[in-house]
């Protein structure tokens, strides 16, 4: 329930956002396809995540969150 830092709107309730997590990106080429589709590090500690400010500015944000404490880190 930590506030999510949105560069457009300021700190906002997480309910306004959709968290996509580690998206894997868009695979190009056969190499690394399986990794891009299914490989997720699920790391403990700082992780890069994508968040969509659905009920706000609709910006996709790249945020770093500490998965152990849920704190957003710069």
């Amino acid at each position: 329930m930590r506030l999510v830092p949105c560069p457009d709107c300021g700190p906002r309730e997480p309910g306004e956002f959709v968290c996509l997590g580690d998206s894997g990106g868009h695979p190009v080429g056969e190499d690394g396809l399986a990794e891009a589709l299914y490989g997720r590090a699920n790391a403990k500690g700082p992780v890069e995540e994508l968040w969509w400010h659905k009920f706000g500015c609709r910006r996709w944000l790249k945020l770093r969150r500490n998965s152990a404490t849920n704190e957003f880190v710069p």
Binding site: V18, L20, L50, W52, K54, R59, W60
Partner: peptide
Amino acid sequence: DACHQRFEYCRQIL
């Protein structure tokens, strides 16, 4: 809604 999210994802991220 999911399409909206995806359109924006493709537009802004990919």
